[in-house]
Amino acid sequence: MIDVAVVAYAARQQPVFDENEIEMMAPVIEDVRVATGLGPDDLDFTCSGSSDFLAGAAFSFVMTVDATRPVPPIVESHVEMDGAWALYEAWVKLQLGEAKTALIYGYGKSSPGSLRDVLATQLDPYAAGPLKADAFGIAGLQARYMLDAGDVTEARMAEIAARSMASAESNPLSIRKGTRRVEELLAEPYLHDPLRAHDVPARADGGAAVILATREVAERVCERPAWVRGIDHRMDIHHLGARDPRRAPSAAIAAQALAVTADKIDVAELDAPFTHQEALLATELGLDSEATTINPSGGSLCGHVMMGAGLTRIGEAAARIHRGEADRAVAHATSGPWLQQNLVAVMEG
């Protein structure tokens, strides 16, 4: 395997950006270029992740390419997925020896529409689609299954929310933060029974950018590169009725393939938009909550950029390694209802 590292990460997120996607992302892309000193001509490959359903415009991602300086022509690709999957494509490109550096960005400006309703379009069009179940309702069903089975309790979900909001205090990008007691959170009314406001993601507009580089470049442009030791992604069946909502086998298989639990994990950044999903993922990945700090950034719960949240998790985990705060980190990205698709990456300093 060719040694590949995350050498830079930058992100922006706020409840609403009045700017268009190009204006929103140009500064983020500029930040990772400045951090590494790698200009457009030094980046062999560019890959982005976004969804036209958020902008409500076909091929909207093509416009955003203007933020990368695409002329003279660059080698560029796009996935209709979270930017974490764009990073996977770039990682494969680097493994194949076709590039030594790659710029990856993932972004979403979901404020123009109703994200909860837009997400209903990803349901299968035969059984679940006609129900038009919104994203909170579907997540609520999953939480209900888990509560009824004793996998989590509402108190445990509130603990996850309280810990995430406390961690988010130190993250300037977080949308939701603060010191809240569990009892106080549990006294709040249901938003979507059994979910309360603190159980659902704090939606944001924004995006993240990452630069990947092979060893010869990485060691030159980054003091402490976050070496990607492995990256794996899997997906579970599309039909909700054919899945066990209490499990995410795709996440477990990806984690096993990477031997996530073979050594101590200092930090895990899990793309868990809902509190009960963090509990589910920690189990599937085999994380030891005593040894591992989960979501020190506050996680997707405290700032959720659709199509950018997974790449943000990778970036946040890598940044801990860059700063010497972690030696081994796990990052996770998800897509689809009930954690249908899962990507896991292991990085080391």
């Binding site: 700017e19 268009n20 204006e23 359903f53 409500g56 123009p112 529409g113 109703s114 379009t121 035969y126």
Partner: peptide
Amino acid sequence: SVRTPFRLEYHASSGQHM
């Protein structure tokens, strides 16, 4: 066959330059 019509409304902002 099954028809699953969707209607989504957007309030887009064009951005400063546009």
